[in-house]
Design a protein around this nucleic acid. Structure first.
Lengths: 226, 226
DNA sequence: CTTTGCTGATAGTATTACTATTATTTAGTA
DNA sequence: TACTAAATAATAGTAATACTATCAGCAAAG
């Protein structure tokens, strides 16, 4: 059996914690499904309210707008990833091994995690691939950042960059390297599916993830070589 | 004196070539200024029509919608970059030197190019930094791609990847490497300004570009080492 | 038993992203 | 010079979006 867990999220991401009520959980569950299906642009609170058999007004009591809801979902994903990396690298001494584990977790195709019954991680990973950049590529990025909305992503990036610094304390671009790799981890999957000439991952679908791991892992190792 | 040039763009990007008429040029000029100022989300054809002292209906005769207009502007930028790289690497034999030139051109801060009086390249680079991903992160990406809307970007990526292959024909990830770097070239500038903990480029504004060149250039060289 | 808070129901508004129609201006040609 | 065609301006209109506001019913907590 699996332990049911609740990830601690920044208060500013929501007006009312959706993890606390049944309606909130329904909002999360169905918004993942709908954003995955329709894309962020096609997704509206109206459509979501129909899906959850409630009203727009009720959704607005949980999330200020659809942008905040998106940031909430993406942050959940990065927080989950950091938790997984912590869990998997706990008690491992060798930083190379920890780095490899982290890269593997970042790049692998996600499947359903029983600890979080409300979240379809497979669909959420697709949302991360397709929509995550839209969380910060806005005019309100500085405002959102001031309220800590991107803490999840920054924390994950810092965590992995620390492993890099442990391996080679003189490498001057640990944060840039890791933020670039986090980006590449999903961007290359997107390209493989939609714009394949921008990648070298042209094979069967499942193989894209392992090829991408090879690409990113070797990129990092060579970059930080002493 | 400088030669006035016209970049050849894919027909499918517009309904009527804006480079052919005064109104079209005004649309391009003011849309760059307005998108830079308001962001893509805040930008509307209504506001543009006020800026150019014309009407929405007239703009719709040139561009199907604001997404197509954005793709047009971004494609112009990448086509321009490829032209600059061609120009600068012409007659250079050494592929390392050509690669370095290309990386330098990609990462440097752009300033006004007299050959194209209608385009404010400084503002356009900011638009590329803030909005370029939104061109393909949509549900219609496959449809748009079928009509060749991303040819400019793909062509530039392929061009630089060829230099990589010339240096090390055995490196298996030349396209992934270059698409990752093209992305990092603007993403890191964005992070330096808005989310600095995701980079190591925390210095004065102008220096960000040269630090970023160092980061990306060394990343590429180490990655493709034999 | 009452208060509080949550939810649902309903309504309404400003803005957006278009489309359609007609009038006017301009440019090219007979 | 007159005629024609194309481009543009002016105007109007529509469906959908992204909210905001109000109020009533219901359940749980004090």
């Amino acid at each position: 059996m699996t332990t049911l867990l609740k990830l601690q999220m920044n208060d500013n991401l929501y007006l009312k914690d959706p993890q606390d009520t049944e309606l909130g959980q329904k909002i999360v569950r169905h918004s993942i499904q709908l954003i995955d299906e329709l894309g962020l642009e096609g997704f509206t609170f109206k459509k979501l309210s129909v899906a959850i058999e409630s009203t727009e007004a009720s959704i607005y009591r949980y999330f200020e707008n659809k942008h905040k809801l998106l940031v909430y979902l993406i942050t959940w994903y990065w927080t989950w990833m950091e938790y997984k990396i912590d869990f998997a690298t706990n008690n491992i001494k060798d930083p190379y091994e920890r780095l490899e584990k982290a890269m593997k977790l970042i790049t692998e195709k996600k499947c359903y995690d029983n600890s979080f019954p409300d979240v379809d991680e497979t669909a959420l990973q697709r949302i991360v691939i397709n929509e995550s950049e839209k969380t910060y590529l806005t005019k309100q990025v500085d405002h959102d950042n001031k309220f800590g909305l991107f803490k999840g992503y920054k924390s994950l990036c810092g965590r992995i960059a620390d492993i890099v610094s442990e391996i080679n304390p003189k490498y001057p671009f640990s944060h840039s390297l890791i933020s670039t790799c986090l980006q590449a981890a999903h961007q290359q999957v997107f390209f493989a599916e939609h714009l394949p000439s921008l990648t070298d991952h042209k094979d069967a679908h499942e193989e894209v993830y392992s090829r991408n791991f090879e690409f990113i892992h070797s990129l990092v190792l060579k970059a930080i070589q002493k």
